[in-house]
C-alpha cells in the first residue's frame, strides 16, 4: 500500500530571524512507523506542532489525512492523536477520569467512552492503577496513560513527541513494543520523535534525521545504509550517548 497520509512540501517556520524548520519536504505512508531523529532544538517539535495545526507555518504546504491543518485543524485533530512532550494530567482526577474527560472532549458517548477507557488502560498495562489519582503516577505510568489518552479517539495517525523521555530502560522497551504492536495490529500510522538512535532503530521503518531545521531521509530497511555514520555527521561531533 503506497498511499501517503502525511504530505509536507517546502515547509518553513521562522521565529523572528531564527529558522526553526527550513524548507522541509516529507511524505509518510499509511501504516508506517516514521521516526524523527535529531538533537534538541533541531525543529522536531515545531514540525509536529505544524502538522497538528497548533502553530502556523511561515511557508509551505501540509496535508494530513488529505486535510490542511491551517484551514481545518479540528477535522485533523479528530483523526490524529498527539502526545506532547512531557504530557500532564489533572492530578486530582484518577487515570480513568482523565481518559473519560478526553473522551468527552472528543464527543464520544459516555457508555462507549467508559468501555474504551477500561480497555485502553488494560492495553497499556495500567489496569491496577485505574482508580489511582494521576498525581501519584510515576513518569512512565503518565507516559503510558498519555498513549491511552491519544488512542481513545480511534486515531488514524498518532504523533508522539519524545515519548520515552524519562522512562527507565525496561519501561522504554515495553513502551516501544506497545507502539510496534499498535501499528501492526490496528494499522495506525505512527510518527515518533526522539533523540535516541537506538530507540528509533528499534521501532521505525524510516527515519528523518533533523539538524538545524533541515532533514535527511533514510530508510532503515536498506541494510547497507550506515545510520550511525549519518547520525554522527548530522549531529556534528556526535551526541552524548545517554543509553
Amino acid at each position: 500500500m503506497h498511499t501517503s497520509i502525511i504530505e509536507v512540501s517546502s515547509l518553513t517556520k521562522l521565529y523572528g530571524n531564527f529558522t526553526a524548520v527550513d524548507s522541509l519536504s516529507l511524505s509518510i505512508e499509511k501504516g508506517e512507523v516514521f521516526g524523527l531523529l535529531g538533537p534538541n532544538g533541531a525543529g522536531k517539535s515545531t514540525t509536529i506542532l505544524m502538522l497538528m495545526g497548533l502553530t502556523e507555518p511561515t511557508a509551505g504546504n501540509i496535508r494530513v489525512c488529505g486535510l490542511d491543518p491551517v484551514r481545518n485543524p479540528i477535522e485533523i485533530k479528530r483523526k490524529v492523536g498527539y502526545l506532547p512532550e512531557d504530557v500532564g494530567f489533572y492530578d486530582d482526577l484518577t487515570g480513568l477520569e482523565n481518559l473519560r474527560y478526553t473522551a468527552r472532549l472528543n464527543g464520544i458517548p459516555e457508555l462507549e467512552a467508559n468501555t474504551k477507557a477500561h480497555k485502553l488502560l488494560y492495553d497499556v498495562g495500567l489496569e491496577e492503577h485505574i482508580n489511582k489519582k494521576t498525581g501519584q503516577y510515576s513518569r512512565g505510568m503518565r507516559q503510558r496513560l498519555g498513549l491511552a489518552d491519544v488512542l481513545i479517539k480511534d486515531p488514524e495517525v498518532i504523533i508522539l513527541d519524545e515519548p520515552t523521555l524519562g522512562i527507565d530502560p525496561a519501561g522504554i522497551r515495553e513502551f516501544l513494543d506497545l507502539i510496534i504492536r499498535l501499528s501492526k495490529d490496528e494499522g495506525i500510522t505512527v510518527v515518533f520523535s526522539s533523540h535516541h538512535l537506538q530507540q528509533v532503530q528499534q521501532v521505525c521503518d524510516r527515519v528523518g534525521i533533523f539538524s538545524k531545521g533541515k532533514m535527511h531521509l533514510c530508510s532503515l530497511s536498506e541494510k547497507d545504509i550506515n545510520l550511525d555514520e549519518l547520525y554522527y555527521r548530522f549531529f556534528e561531533g556526535g551526541p552524548k550517548n545517554e543509553n
Binding site: L54, Y82, F89
Partner: peptide
Amino acid sequence: NKGTLSRMLAQPIP
C-alpha cells in the same frame, strides 16, 4: 504549567 493545555488543544475542539 501542568502540561494539560497542549493535550487539551490537541483534541478536536476550537
